[in-house]
């Protein structure tokens, strides 16, 4: 039995050690650096532990970065605005994604795979280029404005690019497959005889939907919403390309703090604060994932 035990140990420990080193340890380092002071040089932060004399270690902890986040309204507004943008986008995603998932689940089996493939296909093409496509559609002399002006519906172009509206569109568009797929997975498994029974008993289809289909699809709604909401809070590319200069999203703030101001400690503090905001949704997501993955005998 010796080689079996060794094999089992190897199968577990290889990915385990990789994830510990490259996924978990980095967060500890981010936390550590969020407590240090900025300095000139490379790396641009003060070490936390310093050998003062032979056996003395001085520990420097600086909570100033966090105090800074609280004092400057820029950060507070960025967090709030990111949360509200992500929430609105998630809701819009659900509004568009639910009928799609429902429709696909009610399509003949032979067509279902094709439709699912059509939902997935955009996901496989470049995310960056798909966001870029919306610039051409939304800008002042873009597709929509040209079309509306050509039809004589408007004389002045409607300003859409560099607004919150454009950011919503970008997020909904990019994350729609992540909403549709989990919804489809729960809707497809649903027992159609429940709806037949409801109809036999004289239940109106809308009521049957609200009383049966919707509650039964809640696991898909929760999983899809979290898959959209959590990454959307920290989104950088979409607000950078479609949002205006005053579109405050926390992902963009972190990016600028790091790449423009080169303030690594504050960027780390921004990241830790964002993680704290997202801890509850991430835990919920883990729970949903665990339940789904653990569903076999």
């Amino acid at each position: 039995m010796r080689p079996v035990v060794a094999g089992r140990w190897a199968v577990i420990s290889l990915p385990y050690l990789w994830l510990l080193l490259f996924f978990l340890v980095p967060f500890v380092i981010v936390f550590k650096i969020s407590l240090s002071d900025i300095r000139l040089g490379m790396p641009p932060y003060q070490p936390m532990l310093q050998w003062v004399e032979a056996q003395m270690v001085s520990i420097q902890i600086n909570l100033g970065n966090y105090a800074f986040l609280f004092e400057d309204p820029l950060y507070r507004n960025a967090y709030l605005h990111s949360l509200s943008t992500a929430a609105v986008s998630t809701f819009l995603c659900l509004l568009i994604g639910y009928p799609m998932a429902y429709g696909i689940a009610r399509t003949d089996k032979s067509w279902r795979n094709l439709l699912l493939m059509l939902v997935m296909l955009p996901f496989w093409t470049s995310f960056l280029l798909r966001v870029y496509a919306w610039i051409g559609i939304l800008k002042n002399n873009g597709l929509i404005n040209n079309l509306l002006m050509g039809m004589g519906l408007i004389d002045q172009p409607i300003v859409m690019l560099q607004t919150d509206f454009a950011v919503y569109i970008g997020i909904v568009y990019s994350y729609l497959p992540f909403m549709v797929l989990p919804l489809y997975a729960t809707l497809e498994k649903q027992d159609i005889t429940l709806l037949e029974a409801a109809a036999d008993l004289g239940c109106h289809p809308v009521r049957a939907f609200l009383a049966i289909t919707l509650p039964l699809s809640m696991p898909g709604v929760v999983a899809g919403s979290l898959l959209v909401f959590i990454p959307a809070v920290g989104e950088f590319v979409i607000p950078a390309l479609l949002g205006g200069p005053d579109t405050l999203m926390i992902g963009k703030v972190l990016w600028n703090e790091f790449f423009q101001n080169r303030d690594w400690p504050v960027a780390s503090a921004v990241a830790i604060a964002m993680l704290l905001l997202l801890v509850v949704p991430i835990m919920l997501f883990q729970l949903a994932q665990g339940r789904q993955a653990g569903g076999h005998p």
Binding site: L24, G234, L254, M274
Partner: peptide, 25 residues
């Protein structure tokens, strides 16, 4: 391990990117 394999699916990319860089440094 379950946590470490499912968290990256939703982790905002700016956080992952920053943390990886700080590890490498």
């Amino acid at each position: 391990m379950t946590g470490m394999t499912s968290a990256p699916l939703v982790m905002p990319e700016v956080i992952t990117g920053l943390s990886m860089l700080l590890l490498f440094v």
